[in-house]
Simulated assay, not measured.
Amino acid sequence: MSSLRPDIYTLTTLRKLSASSVRTHASSTQSSGRGAAPTADGRRTQVIVENTYRTEPDAKFPVRKVREIIKDVLESRLEEERYKPEESNELAKELTEVIKERVKALRVPRYKLVCFVQLGTGKKSEVQVSSQCIWNPDIDTYADFTFRNHHMFAVGIVWGMYYE
């Protein structure tokens, strides 16, 4: 009979947690655990957040908007640019960061972003870019844009993968 007591307590605790998605505990000890924040009286408050178990997003990944962001960044930055192999690595990193920050500003909830930019010379070069991963084709997606001028090309891709 005593072995059932912890199960009953756990079930009662789970029911209380189910009633609200966030519950706080105040303790008088000065613990430095993750998620603990000091209160006015010196106590630490630990926030316990219950899982949502959402398997589908509230809002889909905005492919058109992301494609426009990639297009805008690549065209505005590379319009008169010439391909310089010694500088292309840093330029690709810079473009990737700018694109990633602008896509993050869209605040699409629960999507993980992967951003990729590849630069190359425009002298009759041809490149095929491929990627492979496991994803849900109904939810996960990507946006891409290819920029070309007389001196270089750039391929920008942003993958949006839903994070449950």
Rank of each mutant, 00 (worst) to 15 (best):
M1G: 15
M1I: 03
S3L: 12
S3E: 05
S3G: 09
L4D: 15
L4Y: 13
L4R: 07
R5M: 10
R5K: 14
P6C: 15
P6M: 09
D7G: 02
Y9D: 05
T10L: 14
L11G: 06
T12E: 10
T12M: 12
T13N: 14
T13Q: 10
T13G: 13
R15A: 03
S18I: 07
S18K: 04
S20H: 08
S20A: 10
R23W: 04
H25S: 06
H25L: 09
H25E: 03
S27E: 04
T29F: 07
T29C: 13
Q30A: 11
G33A: 08
R34G: 09
G35Y: 09
A36K: 04
A37W: 14
T39I: 09
G42V: 09
R43Q: 02
R44H: 04
T45A: 14
T45K: 13
T45W: 09
Q46T: 07
Q46R: 07
V47E: 03
V47Q: 05
I48Q: 05
I48K: 02
I48S: 10
V49G: 06
V49K: 10
V49D: 12
E50Q: 11
E50V: 04
Y53W: 10
R54P: 00
T55G: 11
T55S: 11
E56T: 12
P57L: 11
F61T: 00
F61H: 00
P62K: 10
R64P: 02
K65V: 00
K65D: 09
E68T: 03
I69A: 03
I70M: 05
V73T: 01
V73Y: 00
L74M: 08
L74Y: 03
E75V: 04
S76V: 03
S76H: 08
S76F: 03
E79L: 09
E81W: 08
R82M: 02
Y83K: 08
K84M: 09
P85G: 14
E86Q: 15
S88G: 14
S88D: 06
N89M: 13
E90Q: 10
L91N: 01
K93F: 07
E97I: 12
V98D: 03
V103G: 00
V103I: 09
K104N: 11
K104E: 15
A105W: 01
L106T: 07
R107N: 13
V108D: 05
V108T: 08
P109V: 02
R110F: 11
R110I: 04
Y111P: 05
L113Y: 15
V114C: 10
C115P: 00
C115A: 15
F116H: 08
F116K: 06
F116P: 00
V117T: 00
G122L: 07
G122D: 01
K124D: 03
Q128C: 12
V129S: 14
Q132F: 03
C133S: 15
I134R: 11
I134Y: 05
W135R: 12
P137D: 08
D140P: 07
Y142K: 13
Y142C: 03
A143T: 02
D144M: 06
F145Q: 00
F145D: 00
F147A: 05
R148C: 13
R148K: 14
R148P: 02
R148A: 09
R148T: 13
N149A: 15
N149K: 06
H151M: 15
A154I: 02
V155N: 06
V155K: 02
V158R: 00
V158L: 10
V158E: 00
V158C: 05
Y162K: 07
Y163E: 07
